[in-house]
């Protein structure tokens, strides 16, 4: 084990950290929006809309992320009409292709978590809100959503960890994030073990921070549970 090499590789690998973080934060933020929309569509009561939303979730949960990334990056670029559309300036860049694939993927998983959480809000609370004279929208915004978000946090924490790890697949479409840099350096030094261990340690730290953040959010959102202590 070449400790010196591992130590020396750290600054270069951390150079990819900013891109990794952008991919994580960007796709989680956009994915949350998609999830919110899709969860609402699935609960809309309109059969057609519900089926479409369910099909989206089914496809993106049922296929490997790697296939999705290649399909977005290499697959879409194959078509003339896409290359001539206004979307091409975005889809031309591997960065946006990665964000798109990751967003659609996490959007599908998160919408399921959110949907479950919304359904778990006791009907009595909604009825009580309606009885107080709240409109359906207001009751949803003030009662259902806050309770659901609190409810979904532990499961969402798992999804965040999965996304942190998933960004490593962006290296397969020429992006130089942490794993991409590790692979590039291995091609130069042939020290597979050392460099992948350093990369693995970076992801472990990222995930540790992510879990702490989620735990903190959980703590902030459940003051009523703390009061008992």
């Amino acid at each position: 084990m070449n400790w010196q090499l591992m130590w020396d590789s750290l600054p270069r690998m951390l150079g990819g950290l900013s891109l990794t973080l952008q991919l994580i934060v960007g796709s989680l933020a956009l994915g949350a929006l998609v999830a919110f929309g899709v969860a609402l569509l699935r609960l809309s009561g309109n059969r057609v809309v519900e089926t479409l939303a369910a099909a989206y979730v089914f496809v993106f949960r049922g296929t490997p992320l790697l296939v999705q990334i290649f399909l977005v990056y290499y697959g879409l670029g194959q078509f003339e009409f896409i290359r001539e559309s206004i979307l091409w300036p975005f889809l031309r860049e591997p960065y946006w292709c990665a964000i798109l694939a990751l967003t659609l993927n996490t959007g599908a998983y998160t919408s399921e978590v959110l949907r479950g959480a919304i359904l778990s809000v006791p009907q009595g609370q909604v009825e009580a809100a309606r009885a107080c004279g709240m409109s359906r929208a207001l009751a949803f915004r003030r009662i259902v959503l806050p309770v659901a978000i609190r409810q979904m946090l532990p499961a969402y924490g798992n999804e965040v960890i999965l996304m942190v790890k998933a960004t490593s697949l962006a290296s397969t479409i020429t992006l130089m994030e942490v794993t991409g840099i590790a692979r590039r350096m291995i091609a130069q030094t042939f020290a597979v073990f050392e460099l992948f261990i350093v990369a693995g340690a970076i992801y472990l730290v990222l995930n540790f921070v992510a879990t702490r953040l989620i735990k903190f959010a959980e703590w902030r959102l459940t003051p009523y549970l703390r009061a008992r202590a």
Binding site: Y74, G77, Q78, R83, P94, T172, T174
Partner: peptide
Amino acid sequence: MRTYDKIDNAGIDLNSGR
């Protein structure tokens, strides 16, 4: 410089103008 795992994929990206 953009580096590809396989030379074919560089060809695909040249073809699509990336």
